[in-house]
Amino acid sequence: MGEIRASDVVYAACDALVAGLDAPGLRILAACTRAEADYDVQDLLPAALAELGLTFYPIAGKAGQEAAARALARHMLAASSRLVSSLSGFTSATDTSCL
């Protein structure tokens, strides 16, 4: 597959089923043996993702790189927002002007 082993994709499909996601392609993907995974995952993954309403981005494609950059930016913004909220709670808890 590229960045991730095919068997890890199969394990992720199993985890998704356990978590409550369900689609025929996801079940087929989760049923792959280790021996089958290296050969079948690349063909099965795009259909399984599509059935779940997700988009498959080829590893070297520009659209995938842009989607990854957007996801990373959202993650970083959410983390910084949580940090600011935590710090504002901390400063108000240590404010001594009320003493």
Rank of each mutant, 00 (worst) to 15 (best):
Met1Gly: 14
Gly2Asp: 03
Gly2Thr: 00
Gly2Tyr: 04
Glu3Tyr: 03
Ile4Asp: 05
Ile4Gly: 04
Ile4Pro: 04
Arg5His: 11
Asp8Cys: 08
Val9Tyr: 08
Tyr11Asn: 15
Tyr11Lys: 15
Tyr11Trp: 11
Tyr11Pro: 05
Tyr11Phe: 08
Tyr11Thr: 15
Ala13Arg: 01
Cys14Trp: 00
Asp15Pro: 04
Ala16Asn: 04
Ala16Gln: 12
Leu17Ser: 08
Leu17Gln: 01
Val18Pro: 01
Leu21Ile: 02
Leu21Arg: 12
Leu21Ser: 13
Leu21Asn: 12
Asp22Thr: 15
Ala23Arg: 13
Ala23Ile: 12
Pro24Trp: 00
Leu26Ala: 11
Leu26Trp: 01
Leu26Asp: 10
Arg27Trp: 00
Arg27Lys: 15
Ile28Asp: 15
Ile28Lys: 15
Ile28Ser: 15
Leu29Ala: 14
Leu29Arg: 12
Ala30Met: 13
Ala30Ser: 15
Ala31Tyr: 01
Ala31Val: 10
Ala31Leu: 14
Cys32Ile: 12
Cys32Asn: 03
Thr33Met: 04
Arg34Glu: 14
Ala35Ile: 06
Ala35Thr: 13
Glu36Thr: 14
Ala37Phe: 01
Asp38His: 11
Asp38Lys: 11
Val41Leu: 03
Val41Gly: 03
Val41Met: 02
Gln42Met: 12
Asp43Ser: 14
Asp43Tyr: 09
Leu45His: 07
Leu45Glu: 03
Pro46Glu: 13
Ala48Asp: 11
Leu49Gln: 06
Ala50Gln: 10
Leu52Cys: 12
Leu52Lys: 08
Gly53Trp: 05
Leu54Tyr: 07
Pro58Asp: 06
Gly61Cys: 13
Gly61Arg: 01
Lys62Gln: 11
Lys62His: 02
Lys62Asp: 10
Ala63Phe: 02
Ala63Leu: 09
Ala63Glu: 15
Gln65Phe: 05
Gln65His: 03
Ala68Trp: 04
Ala68Arg: 10
Ala68Lys: 04
Ala69Asp: 06
Arg70Met: 06
Leu72Cys: 01
Leu72Asp: 06
Leu72Ile: 04
Leu72Gln: 08
Ala73His: 07
Arg74Ala: 11
His75Trp: 10
Leu77Thr: 06
Leu77Asn: 04
Ala78Thr: 02
Ala79Trp: 02
Ser80Pro: 00
Ser80Tyr: 02
Ser81Gln: 11
Arg82Ile: 00
Arg82Lys: 08
Leu83Gln: 10
Leu83Phe: 05
Val84Cys: 01
Val84Gly: 01
Ser85Asn: 07
Ser86Glu: 08
Ser86Cys: 08
Ser88Lys: 06
Ser88Arg: 08
Ser88Asn: 07
Ser88Leu: 06
Ser88Glu: 12
Gly89Pro: 09
Gly89Ile: 01
Thr91Leu: 10
Thr91Tyr: 07
Ser92Arg: 09
Ser92Asn: 06
Asp95Trp: 08
Asp95Cys: 14
Asp95Met: 09
Thr96Met: 14
Ser97Arg: 15
Ser97Asn: 14
Cys98Gly: 15
Cys98Pro: 00
Leu99Met: 11
Leu99Asp: 13
